[in-house]
């Protein structure tokens, strides 16, 4: 019996959310008195894989097949299912990314397992296997007992600290499954990467600077971008801003957009509608800048400034640039 963690790479490095998943996997393994193995697919640097030892991973199974550099669900599922079988894994851990949730759901069917996505806690294992998941768009938590023999968990981003278990390097073993053309039937024809401002992915970012209709037009977005750059943050926006084509849809956060849970969320000229809050309410610290003291967002904020964004934000940019890193 063991715990298997799927880790995702981005630009050759392991995603922060996958380091969280590795931490989770190791901690579950400790609870169950076993070890945690990781499986990695596609383009990831081998030294980055070995470094997973820091999160307590003892061994990494690495499938470097270049056909897998892009996500191909069926092929990924086959590789991970084989790894799970080889390692006799009873707990499979993913990060709650598009890839992690997709592969987790398919594996739940294939391995006849119980799946919980959006998980925020380690399991309670006295009398079951009970994890907490975030539900109702961050407005509640549910405790769920995973009753099948195989448990599959997708860990919500930024829900737990990346731990340094202090172990040595993980051993990296080459691994592959017998993939056929059929496994690539839904392989992407083309991948179009965004210009991720300063290389910070919105879903992985520790800091997010977000703008709303209060910024008046796309020509003013330098305020958001400059502040984001000074803080090493990703940029986001409210739904109407995307609907008006001021910003691309992949930046739209909220109930019907992307849900984010960074350490710091800075909202500029956003009123704080309930549907917007639903996508950002698990942020650890929320800052609101709005010229209307009655804006509902202030009720959900930790820090607030009542003022005109066009006066306030340049001051913040200046102060942020002056910070020693």
């Amino acid at each position: 019996m063991s715990v298997l963690v799927f880790v995702e790479g981005f630009n050759g490095e392991i995603k922060k959310s996958s380091l969280e998943a590795a931490t989770y996997g190791y901690q579950v393994a400790q609870q169950l008195g076993t070890t945690a193995t990781a499986v990695a697919i596609g383009e990831v640097h081998e030294d980055a894989l070995a470094k997973l030892g820091e999160q307590g991973i003892s061994k990494v199974l690495y499938d470097a097949d270049s056909r897998l550099n892009n996500f191909v669900a069926d092929a990924y599922v086959k590789v991970i299912a084989k790894a799970a079988q080889q390692e006799n894994a009873k707990v499979l851990v993913f990060s709650n990314s598009n890839i992690g949730a997709a592969v987790g759901a398919k594996l739940a069917v294939r391995l006849n397992g119980s799946l919980a996505t959006n998980v925020t806690t380690l399991p309670k294992t006295d009398g079951g296997f009970i994890v907490t998941r975030s539900v109702f768009s961050g407005k509640a938590f549910a405790e769920v007992n995973l009753t099948s023999d195989v448990k599959i968990i997708a860990v919500k981003k930024n829900a737990l600290e990346i731990a340094n278990a202090g172990s040595g390097a993980a051993t990296v073993e080459k691994f592959s499954a017998d993939l056929t053309d059929a496994d690539f039937a839904a392989a992407p024809k083309e991948t179009i990467m965004q210009d991720t401002s300063g290389g910070v992915l919105l879903t992985e970012a520790e800091i997010v600077v977000s703008g709303g209709r209060g910024l008046k037009g796309p020509e003013n977005w330098h305020l958001v971008e400059d502040l984001a750059k000074a803080l090493g943050a990703a940029t986001a926006c409210s739904k109407p801003v995307a609907d008006l084509d001021w910003r691309p849809h992949h930046e739209h956060v909220g109930q019907t957009g992307i849900a984010v849970s960074p350490n710091l969320y800075i909202a500029i000229g956003i009123s704080g509608a309930i549907q917007h809050l639903a996508g950002v309410n698990s942020s650890k610290v929320i800052v609101v800048i709005n010229k209307d003291p009655e804006a509902p967002f202030f009720k959900a904020a930790d820090y607030g400034i009542v003022g005109d964004a066009f006066d306030v934000v340049p001051k913040l940019i200046e102060a942020a640039r002056a910070l020693d890193k």
Partner: peptide, 8 residues
Amino acid sequence: IEGGKEVV
């Protein structure tokens, strides 16, 4: 996908 999109 995170950081972009794919045509399938």
